[in-house]
């Protein structure tokens, strides 16, 4: 199992579209993926769950991945959140 924390840097936070991208990305991998914000943890493969996190600009989210392809999955998610910042501002 691997874990990592990230700060949300796109201005509008994880609203619908970023949530969609996050779910699509984590769903590509076999590993289970859980994401938490302020102690509230949800399945990162569920759009409803991710939306409910209400992760706004500047909040710190925590990713917890477990499975055979956890490394690749973490890499892809990190790229999405940190490098591409959800393809928006």
């Amino acid at each position: 199992m691997i874990e990592k924390s990230f700060t949300i840097t796109n201005k509008l936070g994880i609203h619908a579209r970023p949530a969609g991208l996050l779910v699509k990305t984590s769903s590509r991998y076999k590993s289970s993926a859980f994401i938490s914000n302020e102690g509230h943890e949800v399945n990162a493969k569920s759009i409803m769950g991710v939306l409910m996190l209400g992760a706004a600009f500047g909040s710190t989210i925590h990713l917890r991945l477990d499975g055979e392809d956890e490394q690749e999955a973490m890499k892809a998610l990190e790229d999405l959140i940190v490098n591409r910042h959800f393809d928006e501002e």
Binding site: G20, K24, I47
Partner: peptide
Amino acid sequence: AKIFEVHQLLLEDVLI
């Protein structure tokens, strides 16, 4: 159009 892609994801959501 992207918003409807989010709607599609809602329909695939395990929670729902």
